[in-house]
């Protein structure tokens, strides 16, 4: 090394390459901005709307009533004298799963669009881009709260007395689903910049999600119709774990006789669900940071 180049290096102390992010860690560092982005989203969405945030109560309630009448009464899935094989207290069964799937659907679909939607900003100013999918998930979490209120009220009306274990499992179930949405949101949010097909693919995925988890029917049907192996695969889906956790916490304490949890649910499947979701987040993080360098030019 020559003297000339070393003096140049002295001048260069403290120089950093701009535009390299530390991924989700940067999001933690930008908590205030995250909060502002979430506030913005909530304010903008309900701007000029009379009912405002009340819509997030009305929409799931209507969805619930429609499903309940169509599936519970017309198709006879609710347990009754004529249909002893049905699920008891089907309304709560359905609703506890639906709120979680609603959260997942909104979270993933908004997160997948978030980078393209915020393209104008991403093209002009450098900031941790993971903020956008994460804030989309967060906003969905806020919309999830009113649905939880409705669910808890409905549960209390039907004699709900959950145990601490059940409540803890619900929290874990939610966490598993939120992590899954975050990971997939990072993946599809990034891919969507390059291929707008990603949005449509996600819409399709979400349509399948409702049916690929025990929201409308009981997990025992999978075992009885498709066998043990199919059940194992079915349980690998973190959504299944999340929904069953919610059934465990909200529906089972209100129903007299239930099919119970799938075998080794709490000891094996919940931890597996958590691990799968965390792996998806890590994969999302990896893919996102691979692709984000070219966001500004591709948008």
């Amino acid at each position: 090394m020559t003297a000339g180049s070393s003096s140049r290096d002295d001048d260069a102390v403290g120089l950093v390459s701009p535009g390299h992010s530390a991924g989700l860690r940067d999001v933690v560092g930008s908590r205030f901005l995250l909060k502002l982005l979430v506030d913005k989203e909530i304010k903008v969405r309900y701007r000029g709307s009379v009912l405002g945030l009340l819509w997030s109560y009305v929409k799931p309630a209507v969805q619930f009533v429609v499903f309940y009448i169509a599936l519970g009464i017309f198709l006879g899935l609710e347990q009754s004298e004529r249909n002893p094989a049905g699920l008891p207290n089907y309304a709560i069964y359905l609703f506890s799963g639906i709120v979680l799937i609603n959260f997942f659907t909104e979270a993933l679909s908004n997160a997948s669009r978030s980078i393209v939607t915020n393209g104008g900003l991403i093209k002009k100013i450098y900031l941790p881009r993971q903020l956008f999918p994460v804030s989309a998930i967060w906003v969905s979490g806020i919309h999830f709260l009113p649905q939880m209120v409705i669910l808890v009220v409905a549960c209390l009306l039907t004699g709900w007395t959950p145990s601490v274990l059940q409540l803890g499992t619900a929290v874990l179930g939610f966490l598993i689903v939120a992590l899954l949405a975050t990971g997939l949101g990072l993946i599809f949010g990034a891919v969507n910049v390059y291929f707008r097909d990603a949005e449509n693919f996600v819409d399709m995925l979400l349509m399948v999600a409702t049916w690929a988890s025990p929201v409308l029917y009981a997990w025992t049907m999978v075992r009885d119709q498709l066998g043990q192996t199919a059940l194992q695969i079915y349980l690998l889906n973190p959504l299944t774990i999340g929904v069953e956790s919610f059934h465990f916490a909200f529906w089972m304490p209100t129903a007299e006789q239930t099919q119970g949890l799938p075998p080794s649910f709490l000891s094996v499947w919940v931890p597996i669900g958590l691990v799968v979701s965390i792996l998806v987040v890590l994969l999302g993080q990896l893919l996102f940071s691979r692709l984000e360098g070219r966001f500004a030019q591709e948008l």
Binding site: L15, S17, P18, G19, I122, I125, Y126, G293
Partner: peptide, 12 residues
Amino acid sequence: SGVMLPDAGTVR
């Protein structure tokens, strides 16, 4: 500003 990254070379 870091919005774009170089294909070759460095920016510091």
